[in-house]
Design a protein around this nucleic acid. Sequence first.
DNA 1: GCAAAAGTGTTTAGCTTACACCCATGA
DNA 2: TCATGGGTGTAAGCTAAACACTTTTGC
Lengths: 254, 254
Amino acid sequence: MSPYDPSAFPAFAVTVDLVVLTVRRHALCALVVRRGEPPFQGRWALPGGFVRADEDLADAAARELSEETGLCAHDPKAPAPGNGAHLEQLATYGDPKRDPRMRVVSVAHLALSPDLPAPRAGGDANSARWAPVEALLNQESGFVREDGQPAQLAFDHGRILADGVERARSKIEYSSLATAFCPSEFTVGELRRVYEAVWGVALDPRNFHRKVTGTPGFLVPSGGTTTRQGGRPAQLFRAGGATVLNPPMLRPEV
Amino acid sequence: MSPYDPSAFPAFAVTVDLVVLTVRRHALCALVVRRGEPPFQGRWALPGGFVRADEDLADAAARELSEETGLCAHDPKAPAPGNGAHLEQLATYGDPKRDPRMRVVSVAHLALSPDLPAPRAGGDANSARWAPVEALLNQESGFVREDGQPAQLAFDHGRILADGVERARSKIEYSSLATAFCPSEFTVGELRRVYEAVWGVALDPRNFHRKVTGTPGFLVPSGGTTTRQGGRPAQLFRAGGATVLNPPMLRPEV
DNA sequence: GCAAAAGTGTTTAGCTTACACCCATGA
DNA sequence: TCATGGGTGTAAGCTAAACACTTTTGC
C-alpha cells in the first residue's frame, strides 16, 4: 500500500461550526441560523460550513464569521484590535453518526463579539438571530420557545454550544477576554455587567472596580468619560495589553 | 447542488496524533516513534494514524494509544480507573501544507501515563522511545541530539507537542490531573516530584504536603506506608474523587 | 550517630470580602 | 432634592510563603 493512494484511507468532509457569543440586554446570547434544507430543516443551528480545499481551519472559521456577521476576526497577535472579534478553536466533533448524510468532522470555533445591531443572514441560511444561551441550553428539558419552535438545536450543536459557553465562562476568570464583549471604549461598570451576564451572578461593584483597575495592563484609561449609564460620569477605558489575569477574577460559587 | 453529492465538498484525510506524556527520572518525557517511510523518513514523530470510517475520534485515539503503549485509556466518567491513562482531546491541526502528500486534518489528543517499563513499537513505526520534552522543544534552536539525529519532529508535531505540554502544565494547576502520572498508590513526595518535573521548578515539601492533604477529596490514604524513597516511611495515597482543585496549586513564577 | 525524607507549627504578607461612606450627574 | 451609578476607605478573614522544628527510617 502506498501512502499516496487516496483509497487507502477513508474520506471525510470537514466543516467549521461557530459558537458566536455576545452580551445583549444583560444576557449571554449566541448566534443561531435557521436551516433551510434537510436534515433538521427549519431548526436552529450554529453557523458554519465546509472548509475549502486549500483553506486553513482558522481561515475557514474567520470567513464564516465574516459571512454571517460582518465581523473581522482579529488575530490575537495582531497589534490593532479594530472592530474585530476574538476567535479561537474550541474542539472537534467527529461522531460517525453526527450527520445522517455522511461522515462529517466539525472543527468548532468560539467567537466573542461586542453587541451588534442585528445579524445579517448569509450563505444558505435564510434567517439568523441572537438567542439567549440559557434558553438554548434548556433543550434537554423539552423547552419550547414562545413561537412554538422547539429550541433543540440541529445535529450535536447543543453540545457544542454548551462546550463553548463553558469555555467562555472559565476563560474570563483568568484572562482579559471579557473585554472582547465590550466596544473599544467602555466603563468599568459595563465590563462588570459583562461578567455578571456571562456568569449569571451579581458582583460587588466596589470590589470589582478595585480589582480590574488594580491589575496592571488590564485596562488603560482613554481619557474620556461618559454618563450613558446614568449617575456619576464614569471613566472610559480600553483593553490593555495584558492577556492573563493574575490573580484571576474569582467566580462566586452559585 | 445536492447536499448528498460527495463532489460538492473537498475530501480530507483525518488522523489522530497523540501527545503521550510521562515522568521518568524527574523529567517530563513524551513518546516519539521513528518514521519508517517518507515523508520525514527516519525522523521522530508523534504516534498516530488514520481515523477509521466508522470510528469516533476518541475511540481512534484510544486505539492508537493502546497499539503504541498497551495502555487502556480510561473514560474520566468510568468508575474503575484501573491501569488506565488519562486521555483528552487537545486541538486540531489542518494547515493545507502540513502534510506534503495530501490534505490531512489531525485531531491531536493528550495522554498522561504513569512511568512505563519501555514503549513497544507498533503499527508502521519501527521504533519508539521516551524523549525528554525539553530536548524535543529545543528544536527551534537547532538542537542536535547526542547521537547526531536532529531532534526536530516531523510535520507540525513540534507545535502539537508544545501545545500538549502547555495544556498539561496549566491543567495540573487547577485539577487533580497530576495523579495520572503516578501509579495507583503513591506518596505525597512522589506527587510533588511530578509537579516539579512537569513545571521544572522546586516546590517547598512542607507547604506542598499541607496543600494536597488539606484539599478535601484530592487524596485518600490507602493505609499502607513505604520507604522506597528513603528516609522516614511515607503514607500511601490513592487519587480521590475530586477532579478540580479549588483553590488551585500555584505555579511559581520561575 | 548521621543523612534523608516525612510531617507539624508559626509568623508574615497579600488578597478577598463585606460594607460604610463620599462624589457627580440627570431628572 | 433625590435617585443612580461611580469610586475610595477600612477592618476581618483566609491563603500562601518562608522557615524553624520534630519524627522515623536506612546505613
